[in-house]
Design a protein around this nucleic acid. Structure first.
Lengths: 254, 254
DNA sequence: TGACACGTTATGTATATACATATTAACGTT
DNA sequence: AACGTTAATATGTATATACATAACGTGTCA
């Protein structure tokens, strides 16, 4: 039996389950199997590849977990209807980011203040009750240019160890990443014109376009930190790349 | 033997494999098991949960596929060292986006031109050889305000059907999503000050901050489309949310 | 004609088993 | 002591089997 010949692309060597996964993924991504298309039943695939049902099942389960297909009992497996676009953005460490473009990194702590949370702080951390927080303003330099201005709040209830850290050597983000686990983060990206204060801090002309990345991080239900990173518009580009092949985002902290 | 009692959080009901997966994920995300920590061996987990090794293996394999843990033969399974931050950004359909904020959507095609690709076009599509392309400029309205200005190129070699589409009713992105599958996309997000031309098109003051989202899409190695979306800085916010629980990005087109 | 029980189907999950493979540790020879 | 061989170990993959579960269709009985 030579059902093997109706393969879409060259099937790579490797384990059978991975090959089935890859074959189906390719068929879907290259459009041969459009959204809504009913994928061959486990039985059929099992005969096509000459393997046990569990092997097919493993491949299909993985595809379902990745959202590429949907499975319904009795009905079969169907190629998912894409609902909204998505992409994975990589947000590297500031220092690594600067050094990646061949510049010398330098950190300048503008201010560091421990205080009882203000109304604004509480809103940024998305909490109701007042608490001790650490507010840090710092500038990240790439060579002699200001690469970014950081305005960070750390919840000292969740991260009491932060009280003893000066952040003179290590950026808050890097320190947090190494010391505090997190489970959820939310990012908001927007553009706006620099006001006089920000213009001074970023060393750009007043009114020039800036990119602002706001990020809030939680561990479970407890807020960890809320940060606003300001980048001069010409300097910074956020690259989001989506490659469906194993594109599961890696977790990270801070 | 009551190893069950040292559970971190309440383990939800559900299938065993899913429960093991969830337990371990929680332990990692909540920091009990730090990066580098060696996860109990399959054998041990198998005894802890009183199940077969395959059941444990399925859970661990899934965690490894999602990047949360790494597995090495003989050595065991380890909590991954997070390398860079990542997040999943959802880029909804423009129309849906406008209607989501309770506004009436309207599309205005400013220009629609079929032409042989210019040097600039080829660079945007990232191709070497000249070809027929469709260049579309259009404005997306939210009520009476300009929500976004779109500057799109479509590769007519990859998408010949596009020749017959006027895009008077349906935005190019929406049409492409429904008709053309894709396998890879790259997004670049940046901020800049509107020049006079863009200011006119977006109906904002010259010099005001704009957010630009550039996106290129491929099917396999063939380019599909390259688009530049310009948003008034005050209007648009790109929300990226990362929830490690089943956060695998869904694929989509255009 | 309608309600309901029942069988069929396809997936969902778990098991015991088997063998492959990568890696480390132990051992023995030179 | 240095080196290579071998055994033990833990994961990787596949299989056959079993039973659960959801959904659909059908047939029976009122």
């Amino acid at each position: 039996m030579d059902q093997m010949e109706n393969q879409v692309t060259d099937t790579p060597k490797g384990q059978l389950s991975a090959r089935i996964h890859h074959d189906i993924e390719q068929r879907i991504l290259l459009g041969e199997w459009a959204p809504g298309f009913r994928i061959p039943l486990e039985r059929e695939l099992m005969e096509t590849y000459g393997c046990a049902r569990m092997t097919v099942n493993k491949a299909l389960s993985a595809l379902a977990a990745s959202g590429l297909i949907e499975r319904r009992r009795k009905a079969g497996s169907f190629v998912s209807q894409p609902l909204s676009q998505s992409a994975v953005i990589e947000i590297p460490d500031v220092r690594a980011e600067v050094e990646a473009i061949g510049q010398v990194y330098r950190l300048e702590v503008v201010s560091r203040q421990q205080r009882r949370s203000t109304r604004d702080d509480m809103e940024r951390l998305n909490v109701q009750s007042p608490r001790q927080v650490l507010a840090i303003h710092c500038r990240h330099f790439a060579g002699r240019r200001v690469h970014a201005f950081e305005d960070r709040l750390i919840d000292l209830v969740s991260v009491p160890e932060a009280v003893d850290i000066s952040f003179a050597d290590e950026p808050p983000g890097t320190w947090l990443r190494g010391h505090v686990p997190w489970s959820e983060a939310e990012n908001r990206i927007s553009a706006f014109n620099a006001d006089s204060m920000l213009a001074t801090r970023l060393d750009v002309k007043e009114g020039s376009a800036c990119l602002q990345v706001e990020r809030s991080t939680w561990r479970g239900k407890r807020p960890i930190t809320a940060v606003r990173m300001f980048y001069p518009g010409e300097t910074y580009r956020l690259v989001a790349h989506f490659s469906p092949k194993g594109a599961m985002p890696r977790r990270d902290s801070a």
